[in-house]
Design a binder for these strands. Sequence first.
DNA 1: CGCCGTCTGTTCGCTACCGCACTTCCGGTC
DNA 2: GACCGGAAGTGCGGTAGCGAACAGACGGCG
Lengths: 249, 249
Amino acid sequence: MTTSDPAARPAPRNRLLAALPPEDLARLWPLLEPVEFAARQILHAPEEPIRAVHFPESGYVSRLAPMEDGDSAEIGLVGPEGLVGLAILLGADRDGFELLVQSPGTALRMEAGAFRDALDRIPSLRPILNRYALAHFEQVARTGACNGRHHVDQRLARWLLMAHDRVEGDSFPMTHEFLSMMLGVRRAGITVAAGTLQKAGLIRYERGRMEITDRPGLEAVSCECYGTARRAYDRLLGPPGAARKPFWR
Amino acid sequence: MTTSDPAARPAPRNRLLAALPPEDLARLWPLLEPVEFAARQILHAPEEPIRAVHFPESGYVSRLAPMEDGDSAEIGLVGPEGLVGLAILLGADRDGFELLVQSPGTALRMEAGAFRDALDRIPSLRPILNRYALAHFEQVARTGACNGRHHVDQRLARWLLMAHDRVEGDSFPMTHEFLSMMLGVRRAGITVAAGTLQKAGLIRYERGRMEITDRPGLEAVSCECYGTARRAYDRLLGPPGAARKPFWR
DNA sequence: CGCCGTCTGTTCGCTACCGCACTTCCGGTC
DNA sequence: GACCGGAAGTGCGGTAGCGAACAGACGGCG
């Protein structure tokens, strides 16, 4: 009943689900189970079978490449604009990365088997997800080009913008320690770079909380990689609805 | 006649085409046009519609991310194991990268429209190409993680191994200048790093020609990123046929 | 209240790599 | 044989970011 009656269903906050024709979304809905993400939760580990895919509705998730020396390099971000579990879409049962919840939130979860069936049964599903896969690929490729070519300040600005795109509001939990792991630099390096951004009036932070106070300014000091990747999403998934600001709607 | 008679057709040297069932390959064959790659030829430019896809049979192609400062960062390599034109597979008509021939060779070319039709008509095609897309994604993501975390020596070794995988024989044209662009470092930095590798007896070079003299040794000094990406290809595309060495068969 | 763990600020010496420039060497070409 | 252009070797000063360490500040908790 409720599951097949579109009126009983709130509009999905996930950008991919929202892009589906209502009737196809209605067919998918019964297979989606709302779940909570906890911070630091591992959605899937490198080289291990992926049990389920997730459509985030709030919060965001990092794609991490495990390195020999034990720590991990972040090479991509997934939030309410995306899908966690692209390997399944592309016909594999695993991939080489860790997908780790960075900012807690909620998601719609779907068993891998059900997802595979749905891809065959619901023809509108694969095209939109394929285009998301390409957009995410562009993001990851850009991140890679950005690493090593651009300075810490620029990359920090870029990372903050990407995170800002994926959360609600201008203020969110964030430590220097965490940022240093994300960017693969020393914690002290973040302290310096963040200090510069703060002195310039672009951000404000204190003890585990970061606030974006001048987004256009931040975009100006960030490298071009931010804009390039963001435009890729908009080009491939369509502009994020009407005049609304959030990235994922 | 010849186009539909499998016996009249040589086995394809492209790993993806070789993985197709013979009858499906026979259906695809008439649409494939053998072409020559010239060095420095641009197969498609960033943000411009992709006219045709290419299945390389020899030589290799770089995926380059254009940077604001004018030069480009290499973030992936495609050779006879792959396909140039993944954006079409994923439902777009363009992407944000330049695909540039680095080592001349030959390829089988297919018009974008014909390729889209074939994806619908020949059911075995999409699955194998999707898995390739994932493997290439893993390569690109690894390259990104590798940039900035690993030293020039290691990255140089890695790049030489990747190139070696995609050419025939142990000796191929290669200049320090070129390598410096690929790795995003100074030309002088390559001279030093290559000198180290040569002194260690792993490679030999002179005036535009590079020879791999100790492949296992090179693998040992390279970072883990080489092995990780290579295993991803083998896992997703099946081991490269029997006891034969080349990467793409 | 005092304690402790987390977060941030800052310093020190060090290394890898940069930007730039100059030289040498080699292979062709006229 | 003289010349030229591309390729490789080398040196110089400069700097971004490293690794390690220490100190202050805040906040939660017993």
